[in-house]
Simulated scan of single mutants.
Amino acid sequence: MEDVHLRPATAADDEFLYDLHRRALGDVIEATWGPWDDDVQREFHRKWFAPATVEIILVGGRSAGMVQAAMIEAGVFYISRIEIAPEVQGGGVGATLLRGLVDRARASGANAVELHVLQLNRARDLYERLGFRVVEVEPPKVRMRLVL
């Protein structure tokens, strides 16, 4: 696997991130809520995208995903979004990224890392392999936690 690094997002990443969302999660979104509605998804993206809160995942120097994570309360590091391009999924990028985020959480003084994942998202298997456990079912999502 090539090196995985992060860089801060910029406004210029807007269209890359929208396309990434469609490619990385489009099938899960459709399985959860029905056919992809470009107007709805663009509005969701418009409201969500704040470059200062997003990091771009670089694999071999090329943009291949995104992550949004931060300490949300004393002791809890929250990963609000991870999206990885389909062409690099399954190659260890997600595991490498998550291990780095767990290290960041520990260094920040967190005692737990939390995230929400759509119940139908295959990434849930990765989270479980890395030690995350379901702590609450909130259909169509589950909340998972890794105790540090």
Rank of each mutant, 00 (worst) to 15 (best):
R62D: 14
E15C: 00
A9P: 10
S63D: 14
V147W: 00
L120S: 14
G131E: 04
R46N: 08
P51Q: 08
T10K: 03
E87L: 03
G61F: 01
T32P: 08
M144W: 01
G100P: 00
H5D: 14
E138A: 03
A74E: 15
H21F: 15
L98R: 06
R104I: 07
G60V: 06
R106H: 10
I57Y: 02
R106G: 07
Q68H: 11
A85C: 05
L130N: 04
D37R: 11
E2A: 14
L98F: 09
D103E: 15
S63T: 07
N121E: 13
V4K: 03
M144D: 07
H45Y: 11
L118S: 01
R46E: 13
Y127G: 07
L130E: 13
L126D: 04
E138N: 06
Q68F: 01
R62K: 13
T53K: 14
L25T: 03
D27G: 02
I72L: 09
G90Q: 10
T32N: 12
G26W: 11
A11Q: 12
D39E: 15
R129V: 09
R145Q: 09
W36Q: 10
S80T: 09
G90Y: 11
G60A: 05
E2S: 15
E138H: 02
F49W: 09
G92F: 08
V88E: 05
T96A: 15
A50F: 00
A110L: 11
G92V: 10
M71C: 07
E73F: 00
G75A: 07
G60R: 04
V88P: 03
A50W: 00
E83F: 12
R124V: 06
A107G: 12
R99F: 01
H45P: 02
G100L: 12
H116F: 11
D103Y: 02
L126S: 07
A95N: 04
H21A: 09
E30N: 07
A112E: 15
L120G: 12
S108C: 10
Q68V: 12
G90I: 09
L20E: 02
G60T: 04
M1I: 05
A107L: 12
G91I: 00
D14Q: 01
V93A: 08
V67F: 05
L146F: 10
V88C: 07
E73T: 13
A69Y: 05
V137C: 03
G75Y: 03
G65R: 11
A105K: 04
Y78F: 14
Q119V: 14
E128D: 06
Y78D: 14
A107T: 09
K47P: 00
G92W: 08
D14R: 11
G100S: 11
D27W: 15
G60I: 04
I29P: 05
V113S: 04
I72K: 11
R81M: 12
L146C: 04
L120A: 15
I56M: 03
D103G: 12
H21M: 15
V76D: 14
D125Y: 08
V142M: 10
A9T: 06
E128H: 01
I82T: 05
W33I: 12
R22V: 15
L120Q: 15
A105F: 07
D39L: 13
Q68Y: 02
M66L: 14
V135F: 00
A110Y: 00
